[in-house]
């Protein structure tokens, strides 16, 4: 697919290049500031697009042909061998489950979910997975955008692109470098009337309820959705940690929050509602 793009060049030869597309059940906006030729940036954005499609094909549980969907349908029947990428993703998710005291949990969509459900997911060193009980459904939605951001970061690095802003559906934003030497990337939050959030080599991730009626984040401790709180946004170095922690801290009690923050570095945190 040819991606749409809009670009503008400054007299000094620097260019702002913008492309956007829909993938992973969301919209993705990529803005790059660079002195490279447009054709080079076209190539870079094609690579980003195809990388995202690969991730989607591996790990998007809304796509019934994705690898994760096949795992969800078959892993209770016997051990299945995973691709390197899915194995890597699931290993990370299991690690973050422990590090967040169980608050970040990819099994909350499972039938008869309890906080023990995740212990029935067995990952082995031979890249195999098995569900010990039927009804488990892994949902990576609360992880994948951050993972995709980190993948895009690696691609841009390979292309020597240092200044870029990547937006995954407004909830996960990665700001690399700066748009101008004198300015950081400035983002304002449409649910929060605070000063614009200034970012440089940082990610801004938001988790929460889109509306009062669309509650989708489940507290693994209670098995219930979160009411009352609207959203939690935080600024982190890593997109993956931003994704994991925004969910965990949205759910967390004050004590949990304190404990989690001892384990991770979060630069800024905003709770709303």
């Amino acid at each position: 697919m040819i991606l749409p793009r809009i670009c503008k060049k400054s007299p000094s030869g620097e260019m702002i290049y913008y492309t956007w597309f829909q993938a992973m059940h969301t919209r993705i906006d990529v803005a790059i500031v660079s002195c490279e030729a447009e054709a080079f940036l076209n190539e870079a954005s094609q690579r980003i697009y195809h990388r995202i499609l690969d991730i989607e094909h591996t790990a998007n549980c809304f796509d019934e042909n994705s690898e994760i969907s096949i795992v969800n349908r078959q892993a209770h029947l016997g051990p299945m061998t995973l691709s390197d990428e899915l194995y890597h993703i699931l290993s990370l998710c299991m690690k973050y489950n422990k590090l967040t005291f169980g608050l970040f949990d990819i099994t909350t969509d499972s039938e008869g979910f309890t906080r023990e459900t995740i212990t029935h997911v067995a990952l082995t060193d031979e890249r195999k997975i098995k569900f010990d009980i039927p009804g488990i459904r892994l949902n990576l939605s609360g992880f994948l955008k951050g993972y995709a951001l980190e993948s895009i970061r690696s691609l841009l690095k390979e292309c020597n692109i240092e200044n870029a802003l990547i937006n995954m559906g407004n909830s996960s934003i990665m700001a690399l470098g700066r748009p101008h030497s004198t300015q950081k990337w400035a983002i304002s939050h449409h649910m929060q009337n605070t000063e614009p959030i200034q970012l440089e080599n940082e990610c801004l991730t938001t988790s929460g309820n889109d509306t009062d009626t669309r509650l989708h984040i489940v507290n693994p401790r209670t098995g219930k959705t979160i009411e009352g709180r609207k959203c939690t946004s935080l600024v982190t170095k890593s997109g993956i940690e931003g994704e994991v922690l925004s969910t965990a801290l949205f759910i967390a009690s004050d004590e949990d929050e304190e404990a989690i923050l001892q384990r991770f570095h979060v630069d800024r945190i905003f709770h709303l509602g």
């Binding site: 559906g169 909830s171 939050h189």
Partner: peptide, 15 residues
Amino acid sequence: KLFGAMPFAGTSWAP
């Protein structure tokens, strides 16, 4: 070289 903040961060964009 004078742009204001980009008003978009928030919970997910709905497809």
